[in-house]
Design a protein around this nucleic acid. Structure first.
Length: 615
RNA sequence: GAUUCCGUAGCUCAGCUGGUAGAGCAUUACACUUUUAAUGUAGGGGUCCUGGGUUCGAGCCCCAGCGGGAUCACCA
């Protein structure tokens, strides 16, 4: 049997441990004292020190705090809580043993019995641990010492037992045995709850985003947010796969960056000795694949834009881009409506989604405005027939600041951005954009100066962007050249001229509808998140300085690496133990460990080992 | 990048006019065999973000920096 199995059977071996354990605890106390006198060089908090002492004590008892063996799990907390009848029928007293693993989140110690809550991937469930149940014989070490003294909130344990309801009616697991699966060395923030009210919740954004693992442990709704995000992506993926479109992957490292207006991240390939850019979009590569003959291709892509950060912008973000041959932007609008409506239904069982104080309804069909109509709707001014001069005047009257470089198209965009966008809460399609803003979109079939482009606006923000793709190679070259002009004038976001892309569409690309949807923005809406950081596991942050506390607390810090590590693997983890060791045996064993661990280092001398011991 | 607010124990937060640094939870010890924000008793725990300055004396006032939030700019 494994040395650390803490089942109630075989408790005879605990008998011999009791005295040993007592002396060891004294040793720990002495170590504590020496640590105290050393506090200036140690960054560990008192609670962390205590946990490391407990770890040592467990090791001395022959209990591995980090066992290698798997722990078989046969159910989870939510299943038991939500299907009590079924769970009781299978796992009730005298029936099959329930086997469940989780992190200890709270303990209510009642003396010779205790209630604790453990948390697994699904949620929390109460366990009941009774001394005479855990320790069936006379030796109560396992309960009195291991459970009561050495196990902490935050430790991960495995429990076997049966399902029952307590006097107060709470579904619980009556433990017949437990096993330590992982000792936690850092104290967890304690969050308490009563009648749905949460006390002392961890809300500090710095802690939550930098230590997402802690956030996930103590804030259960965070786990749910990311589950929803994944379901959102899966729903879209299934929808597109059912239509027969091909999910593909295209380069992230690109020699030229294109497909969007943004500043890139720049990097360098050593062997090729060339500059590469992290993609700002994957549009131009996906369209090459349409040229190649696929009917529909899509990619969930991480894109990178070297711009400012805010609660709507992270330097890396996720987009889905979709291109479908022989279609146009009208057709694509219908697809977007249908797909997003499906997402809402999948996540919320309804097309209506609560976002902050508002309820947003994704039920089809969505409102559709041309850009001119939207401006007229929100400002009362019809700008559609105005020339640049007239439009400047109109914008000035609306209190919009313009600079001289802005042409007619940019002015329209400014007016829309400041007067309309924020007012569009319910999902709305805005169509027919000025050509200057859209160098990759096809000219409008009937309205000069405009392109066949739409955006879906939702909760005052752009949710997606799509157009009938420009497939006229001569026009496309001209548009790129115009972008080059902008670049020469200092516009860092102007697109570069991609000769290979032009070569591709010179071979001919069928009429194509293209779409890009910001997955992070959509996730924010679908999970009611106020910040993009709430839908990214690891949002970009300035680096923090982490104080290391490696090995400084073991009392072995005077021993050079990797020997300090080797010695602690041999079970010697304190100065006290080192002192008690036989230097000749230690020296020999170190040689053995060197061989066993295949360490490519030269052996130290016996004299050196003696000097470590006699520090 | 600009403006503004914040940074105190493991966590959530108080801290008066500038005069010995506080609470709850957590932690340690003891008690308690169906509790549930368990409870009772007694303890321990602090680089008050960092560095300067003013002052007899700074968690508090001033300056600079670091980190975070919000708003704005850029962008999706």
């Amino acid at each position: 049997m494994p040395t650390n199995s803490l089942s109630s059977s075989g408790n005879c071996e605990h008998l011999s441990r009791k005295n040993y354990c007592q002396t060891e605890r004294d040793n720990c106390k002495r170590q504590h004292v020496s640590l105290q006198s050393n506090l200036k060089t140690i960054t560990l908090s008192e609670q962390e020190q205590i946990r490391r002492e407990k770890l040592n004590e467990l090791l001395q008892m022959g209990i591995n705090p980090y066992p290698a063996e798997k722990f078989e799990i046969n159910t989870n907390s939510t299943f038991i809580l939500e299907n009590y009848e079924q769970a009781e029928a299978r796992f009730g007293a005298g029936k099959e043993e329930v086997s469940i693993g989780g992190r200890i989140m709270s303990v209510r110690d009642m003396g010779k019995a205790a209630f604790a809550q453990i948390q697994d991937a699904e949620g929390k469930i109460q366990i009941y641990i009774k001394r005479d149940e855990i320790c069936k014989g006379d030796d109560k070490t396992l309960y009195d010492t291991v459970w009561k003294k050495l196990i902490d909130i935050g430790d991960i344990i495995g429990i076997k037992g049966y399902v029952f309801k307590t006097k107060t009616g709470e579904t619980s697991i009556h433990a017949s045995s437990f096993i330590l699966l992982c000792k936690s060395l850092r104290p967890l923030p304690i969050v308490k709850e009563k009648d749905g009210e949460v006390f002392d919740a961890v809300i500090d954004p710095d802690l939550r985003y930098r230590q997402r693992y802690v956030d996930l442990i103590v804030n259960p709704q965070v786990k749910e947010t990311f589950r929803k995000r994944t379901r959102l992506v899966n729903t879209m993926r299934n929808y597109l796969n059912e239509k027969g479109y091909l999910e593909v992957e295209t380069p992230i490292l690109q020699p030229l960056y294109g497909g969007a207006a943004a500043r890139p991240f720049k990097t360098h390939h050593n062997t090729l000795d060339m500059t590469l850019y992290l993609r700002i979009a994957n549009e131009l590569y996906l369209k090459r694949l349409i040229v190649g003959g696929y009917d529909g291709v899509y990619e969930f892509s991480k894109d990178f834009r070297n711009e400012g950060m805010s609660r709507f912008h992270n330097p890396e973000f996720t987009q889905i881009e979709l291109y479908v041959a022989y279609k146009d932007y009208e057709w694509m609008m219908n697809l977007v409506e249908e797909m997003i409506e499906k997402v809402a239904l999948e996540l919320h069982g309804s097309t209506a989604v609560k976002v902050g104080e508002k309820t947003i309804d994704f039920k089809r069909p969505w409102k559709r405005f041309t850009m001119y109509e939207a401006i007229e709707h929100f400002t009362g001014v019809d700008v559609s027939e105005m020339d640049e001069m007239a439009m400047r005047k109109a914008a000035a009257q609306m209190g919009i600041e313009l600079d001289d470089t802005m042409a007619r198209g940019k002015i329209i965009d400014e007016i829309f951005g400041s007067k309309c966008e924020a007012n569009l809460i319910q999902p709305t399609f805005i169509t027919d954009y000025p050509v200057e803003m859209s160098p990759l979109a096809k000219k409008h079939r009937s309205k000069p100066g405009l392109v066949e482009r739409f955006e879906a606006i939702c909760n005052g923000k752009e949710m997606c962007n799509a157009f009938s793709e420009l497939n006229d190679p001569i026009d496309q070259r001209k548009r790129f050249e115009e972008q080059l002009e902008l670049g020469k004038r200092g516009d860092e976001e102007a697109m570069q001229l991609d000769e290979d892309f032009l070569r591709a569409i010179e071979y001919g690309m069928p009429p194509t509808a293209g779409l890009g949807i910001g997955i992070d923005r959509l996730s924010m809406i679908m999970t009611n998140a106020a910040s993009i950081q709430d839908v990214l596991f690891f949002p970009q942050m300035k680096p923090e300085t982490i104080e290391t506390n490696a090995a400084t607390d073991t009392g072995l810090s005077h021993i050079p690496a990797p020997w300090n590590d080797v010695i602690s693997r041999m079970g010697i983890t304190s100065k006290q133990q080192l002192k008690e060791a036989n230097p000749n045996k230690l020296f020999n064993d170190m040689g053995g460990m060197r061989k066993k661990l295949k360490l490519d280092i030269s052996m130290v001398t016996l004299e050196e080992v003696k000097s470590w011991i006699n520090v």
